[in-house]
Amino acid sequence: MAQRDPVADISVQFGGLGIRSYSVKNEYKKIMKQLKDDFEEILRDQRNQADGSLKQEISGQKIPLMYIVNTLKYAWRQHELYIEQMPSDVTVLFVGMNPAPDTPSGIPFGHEKMIRKLFGIDISKEKLDGIPPILKSKQYVDKYGKSRDCVSGRRFWKFTNRPVADIDQVRKQSFVMNCSPLLFTGRTEKWNGPKEKAYQKNISLNDLKYYKHQLVRNLMEKSEDALKRAINLLQPKLIVAFGQYVEERLEKLGFSTSYVVRVTHPSPIVDGQEDNEADPDTGDDKWIAKVKEELKKNSRWNELMRANQNSISY
């Protein structure tokens, strides 16, 4: 699937997994820091200094692209702390799409409460360094006028951290990253009380293909190059892709389909259902059960499970 990484090989020669883990983490940090800096170089002259919006909106499928936010820039410390908790040997790599407005935290699937509980990292917006004004705005609310809970993050971290044998080993040997750490939003109109009011809407990577602009292409090329380098460095035995878009990107980057398994994305939008705040566990449990069934159909996943059958039982 991936070429051997010389840094990992050298580190094994000089002391085993401890040094290898240290070297891989440092190389991974270098990849992501370079990506952060590349984004800033590309975006530097494209944004208004006052609020970080694009000087020229980019037309697309439905709404104009108005903000491109480099989440690594202001959540770099949180991202570093997450990298430090990377396992020494990443057996399973989960790959998501990109941050949503409710998760601009430097950590994929950044559910604030669960990240604090599981990793001891505070990703609240108050702790982010120089967060763009738009992400503090009340324009980022759900249809009821409340700050939205990160449903995708809640479901994902529940899946990988349930206190049962069949999930525990996955958590210990897994890591998660996104296709891109960039957040894209566009201006639209929303019915809000007695009159129409402009608000910001997330533009997914799947919809970004309709925004045929050189700026977007340059940013995504940098994202995909970093993703490929990171996967080649980590050398997971299996990549779990959340959704068709991620699967297609990985295939484009040259990763064999025998090493990639696609599962349903944890977003409730995928199921065409709103999250039930009164009973979130029901929707979460349904998604987790569905993903486990999808994984069980993959031969490589089953091989990994058998290899860890003392710890994992499916």
Rank of each mutant, 00 (worst) to 15 (best):
85 Q>V: 02
170 V>D: 09
168 D>A: 15
6 P>N: 06
304 L>Q: 08
96 G>F: 09
75 A>G: 07
71 T>C: 03
102 D>V: 11
166 D>S: 14
276 N>P: 00
184 F>P: 12
33 K>P: 00
208 L>F: 10
64 P>Q: 04
71 T>R: 08
132 P>N: 02
255 F>P: 01
220 M>A: 04
49 Q>Y: 02
308 N>R: 12
10 I>F: 15
195 K>H: 14
288 I>V: 14
59 S>E: 15
162 R>V: 07
56 Q>L: 02
73 K>V: 00
82 Y>C: 00
174 S>R: 01
89 D>Q: 12
182 L>H: 04
294 E>P: 02
292 K>P: 00
64 P>R: 04
219 L>H: 11
271 D>T: 09
73 K>W: 00
154 R>I: 01
128 L>C: 03
104 P>T: 03
303 E>T: 13
235 Q>P: 01
268 P>M: 01
307 A>V: 10
95 V>H: 07
68 I>C: 08
239 I>V: 15
67 Y>T: 10
90 V>K: 08
194 P>M: 11
154 R>C: 03
223 S>W: 08
126 E>Q: 05
129 D>P: 00
64 P>A: 11
116 R>L: 07
174 S>Q: 05
71 T>A: 07
200 Q>A: 14
162 R>A: 14
260 V>G: 05
82 Y>A: 06
237 K>G: 08
224 E>A: 01
267 S>E: 06
225 D>Y: 09
91 T>L: 10
209 K>F: 02
152 S>Y: 11
35 L>S: 03
228 K>V: 05
216 V>K: 09
31 I>T: 00
138 K>N: 13
65 L>D: 10
118 L>W: 03
203 I>K: 00
277 E>V: 07
141 V>G: 03
295 L>S: 08
76 W>R: 10
42 I>R: 06
94 F>W: 12
255 F>R: 01
209 K>R: 10
184 F>Q: 07
33 K>C: 01
60 G>L: 07
202 N>W: 15
279 D>F: 10
106 G>K: 04
233 L>M: 02
40 E>L: 07
7 V>M: 06
16 G>I: 06
13 Q>E: 13
311 S>W: 13
149 D>T: 15
103 T>C: 11
25 K>T: 01
162 R>E: 11
257 T>I: 03
94 F>D: 01
81 L>S: 12
10 I>H: 11
81 L>V: 00
77 R>V: 12
259 Y>D: 12
161 N>R: 09
